[in-house]
Design a protein around this nucleic acid. Structure first.
Length: 424
DNA sequence: TCTGGGGTCCTAGGACCC
DNA sequence: TCTGGGGTCCTAGGACCC
């Protein structure tokens, strides 16, 4: 970070998933579209649907009550990932410094582009927005400021198709209108704390002395404070860093107390997470899993594996052993999850017991052939017997989404599904 | 906002050692 | 047999994000 003032644009997709569905099917344009059928909740909402009172996070039942004619679609993450790629490619026409923050958001540092492109900053930002609208048929909102935090608050300010420029002289005027909880990085908990301390707006926060901030809050909030005051402490980093530190698979189901059912859900999660490890040629060294109760309490347990692995059996063994530590017959559960850590590439073969690597190779080959069978004969072709109970409750539509993802992966082999391919 | 799924980073506090 | 002070490492879990 030099001392030079940065010029940063934040691009934010408007109702991104719903917008992609519309771009794929023009018949939907102008209609209330809600994506996320398979998740049972609204993951994205078109602006027509928003006008009808629907908002992100609502259950599909609420959606249908509020708006019986809403068009509800499944979430096609693979499609969104491709739109996302295209969107970022357009941004790169105007600057090489693009940080892909998530599937529908990025930061673009255009500080050096004014001279290169012989365009004003404002024209560059407009050009990016117009290109995306024209080439992709989706709309985005733009925020333009000297720091990432300010640019992000600005892009949220007006939607859809917003264009908010935050010049130095307008920062205070603007932050006065922004509730503290709307600032990027300040969530419900910190927002409540600040309210108690008498800070209600982003401006009041920005005007506090640094000593006050460090006295009451942790390090990340000091950074936010600097950025709100126009001092850029977080640069736009364009190097793609898609290395996982952890991976997880979770699923919510009909409330149950059945121990065997919970174990089969965990088994199914393990199968899915191992498929992901194989797809990216990764192994894991740490495992943690949890049971989540009706009251949203988590009971966890974890273990270090004897060696890095991607074999379902190795994880399953550990989970079975630790399961009694977290399970109580008198509790009702609504979800389970598996989280793997210590992620490393498969190729980095650690010095290992000879027999162990042989065993690993054999199992790995076996599961790879399962992958082939599943591709050929469908998702129900092969799965572990221990996952049976969870599998029978699987909805057909979920299968269908997985199929589409696979198809697109084959149609666009060079695009790949980026790490946030199933985010949001 | 009766609440899905997938991530990251930070910190408090216990364990252990000298 | 009862006790100080300090450092480091690790884990659980809080908070936040999309």
């Amino acid at each position: 970070m030099g001392t030079r003032k940065r010029v940063i644009v934040h691009i934010d997709g408007d109702g991104f998933f719903a917008a992609c569905e519309i771009a794929q099917n023009e018949a939907l344009r102008g209609k209330p579209v809600v994506a996320g059928e398979d998740k049972g909740m609204a993951l994205a909402v078109s602006y027509e649907a928003k006008k009808r009172g629907i908002s992100r996070g609502m259950t599909m039942r609420q959606v249908r009550e509020l708006c019986p004619d809403a068009i509800i679609t499944m979430a096609h993450y693979d499609t969104y990932a491709i739109y996302s790629r295209r969107m970022y490619a357009i941004a790169r026409r105007y600057s090489p410094i693009v940080q892909e923050y998530s599937v529908d958001e990025c930061f673009v540092d255009i500080t050096d582009e004014q001279e290169t492109l012989k365009m004003s900053y404002e024209d560059i930002a407009h050009a990016i927005q117009n290109d995306i609208h024209r080439d992709l048929g989706i709309s985005v909102s733009l925020g333009f400021a000297s720091t990432k935090v300010l640019a992000k608050v600005a892009s949220k300010w007006r939607k859809p198709a917003g264009f908010t420029i935050l010049t130095e002289d307008k920062i205070h005027e603007f932050l006065f209108e922004v509730p503290i909880g709307k600032v990027w990085g300040i969530g419900p908990s910190t927002s409540a704390l600040l309210q108690r301390l008498g800070v209600k707006t982003a401006l009041e926060f920005a005007l506090k002395p640094e000593s006050w901030i460090t006295e009451h809050l942790a390090k990340p909030y000091v950074e936010i404070w600097h950025e709100l005051n126009g001092r850029s402490v977080s640069s736009v980093h364009s190097e793609p860093d898609h290395t996982y530190k952890s991976v997880m698979k979770t699923r919510t189901f009909k409330p149950t107390t059945d121990k065997n059912y919970l174990l089969s859900e965990l088994s199914n999660n393990i199968e899915r997470i191992c498929r992901k490890l194989r797809r990216y040629n990764l192994t894991a060294k740490y495992l943690s899993f949890y049971l989540k109760t009706q009251e949203f309490t988590y009971y966890r347990s974890e273990a270090v594996l004897p060696h890095a692995t991607s074999i379902p059996h190795d994880f399953l063994e550990v989970v079975k052993k630790l399961f009694p530590n977290v399970y109580k017959a008198n509790r009702t559960y609504r979800a389970t999850g598996i989280v793997l850590g210590g992620i490393a590439p498969l190729t980095s073969k650690q010095p290992d017991l000879f027999g162990e690597s042989i065993r690993f190779e054999k199992h790995n080959a076996l599961y790879k052939s399962f992958d082939v069978l599943r591709k050929k004969f469908g998702k129900e072709a092969v799965f572990l017997a221990s996952s049976m109970k969870a599998r029978v409750t699987y909805k057909k539509k979920i299968e269908k989404v997985e199929e589409t993802e696979e198809r697109i992966r084959q149609e666009y082999p060079n695009v790949g599904i980026p790490w946030w391919g199933n985010a949001q």
